[in-house]
């Protein structure tokens, strides 16, 4: 299973990729939203773990761009949030086709594994 982890924090992407690799997943990382968008367009991932708050081009921008090109529904995106986005917004985004669920930072790795296993 191939997973893309997107977060502007290198330590977070590093930690996720280490853990997911240990758990037997193939893992790619991106530290900017723009780069992540290109990767999603050019490669296929089973899951994308996407941070909402990133400078310049955030998670929401990635989702909007994918939606505009009608690519959102082809993906399985797990949203990461640190509550800077209000709950209502998150709930509205989660309703969209292509968005699997949202996880609040700091994420419990066991919880993430459960989501991936389902």
């Amino acid at each position: 299973m191939k997973i893309l982890v997107v977060d502007d924090n290198v330590d977070i992407t590093g930690m996720f990729s280490k853990y997911l690799t240990l758990k037997g997943y193939e893992c790619a990382i991106s530290n900017t939203g723009q780069n992540a968008l290109n990767m999603i367009k050019n490669q296929s991932f089973d899951y994308v773990i996407l941070d909402m708050s990133m400078p310049e081009f955030g998670g929401l921008d990635v989702i909007k761009s994918l939606e505009n090109e009608d690519l959102l529904k082809n993906n399985k995106i797990i949203i990461l949030t640190a509550s800077s986005v209000s709950n209502v917004d998150i709930e509205n985004i989660t309703k969209k086709e292509g968005i699997t669920t949202f996880l609040k930072k700091p994420v419990q790795l066991s919880e993430l594994l459960q989501v991936l296993a389902n």
């Binding site: 924090n9 330590d11 977070i12 590093g14 930690m15 996720f16 853990y19 640190a82 509550s83 930072k105 700091p106 994420v107 419990q108 790795l109």
Partner: peptide, 9 residues
């Protein structure tokens, strides 16, 4: 909250 993610992970 952000630094807590890698710490707790």
């Amino acid at each position: 909250k952000t630094p807590l993610t890698p710490i707790r992970g």
